[in-house]
Simulated assay, not measured.
Amino acid sequence: MARSDDQSVAAELGINPETLRNWVRAAGASRPRGRRTQEPAQPPTSREAESAALRKKVCELEEEREILRKAAKHFRGLRRGVAGSWLRPADRGLRAAQPR
């Protein structure tokens, strides 16, 4: 990515341009240097296209699973009383006081 591209993408995402640059560097992407001497790549075959689509779907599903795992952990903490005073005693697994 060119410098102005970094800044415009970062602004669109609402993050610091340096953060975006660090993410790109960590992902192993680099800026092209000089002229490209390679010939244009052949269009992907149907198997390659299907494989790419499946890899993309796997990434999406893994991300969704991670979000759900974090949400479950958060709500499990609420039910254990970490911030669960809003739960009724019966919902917290406690017995309500018996009238005398």
Rank of each mutant, 00 (worst) to 15 (best):
L94E: 06
E64A: 14
S30W: 12
A71P: 01
C59D: 10
V24L: 06
A96S: 09
E62R: 04
S51W: 15
A71I: 10
R55V: 04
A11K: 08
W86T: 04
L61I: 03
A41W: 14
A11E: 04
T19S: 04
R80A: 08
P32Q: 15
S85M: 13
C59H: 10
Q98D: 08
T37F: 14
A52Q: 07
E18V: 11
R88N: 09
A29K: 12
I15H: 03
R55Y: 09
M1G: 00
G28Y: 03
P99F: 04
P40C: 01
F75Y: 15
S30M: 12
P40D: 01
D91T: 08
R31C: 00
E62S: 04
R76V: 04
I15F: 11
R21K: 01
S46W: 13
A41C: 06
T37K: 10
Q98K: 09
L54H: 02
E66H: 06
D91N: 06
R100T: 08
G77Y: 13
G28V: 03
G28C: 03
S30G: 11
A72E: 11
E39W: 08
L13K: 02
S30F: 13
N22G: 05
S4L: 10
Q42S: 11
S85K: 11
K57G: 05
T45Q: 05
E60N: 06
N22L: 10
P32D: 13
P17R: 00
A90L: 11
R80S: 12
R35W: 09
A10I: 00
S51T: 15
R76D: 09
A26V: 03
E66T: 07
R80G: 07
R88D: 12
S85H: 11
A96Q: 08
K70H: 08
M1E: 07
R47E: 15
S4E: 11
A72C: 10
Q42E: 14
R35S: 05
G77R: 06
L61V: 00
G93L: 02
R36K: 05
A26E: 06
A11D: 03
E63I: 07
W23Y: 09
E60K: 02
V9W: 13
F75W: 15
T37V: 14
F75M: 03
N22F: 09
R95D: 10
R36C: 09
A11P: 03
C59V: 08
V82C: 10
D6Q: 14
A29L: 14
G77N: 04
A26Q: 07
S51Q: 11
W86L: 02
N16D: 12
D5K: 13
Q42A: 14
P40L: 05
E63K: 02
E63R: 02
R3S: 04
P99S: 03
S4P: 01
S51P: 08
G77M: 13
C59E: 12
E39H: 09
R76A: 06
G14L: 00
S8R: 15
Q98G: 03
A29N: 08
L68K: 02
L78W: 11
Q98N: 05
A52E: 07
I15W: 10
Q42F: 14
E12A: 09
E39S: 07
A11I: 05
G81T: 03
R79V: 13
A11N: 05
W86I: 04
R69V: 05
I15C: 01
K73P: 04
L13G: 02
E64L: 11
I67F: 13
K73I: 14
L61P: 00
Q98L: 13
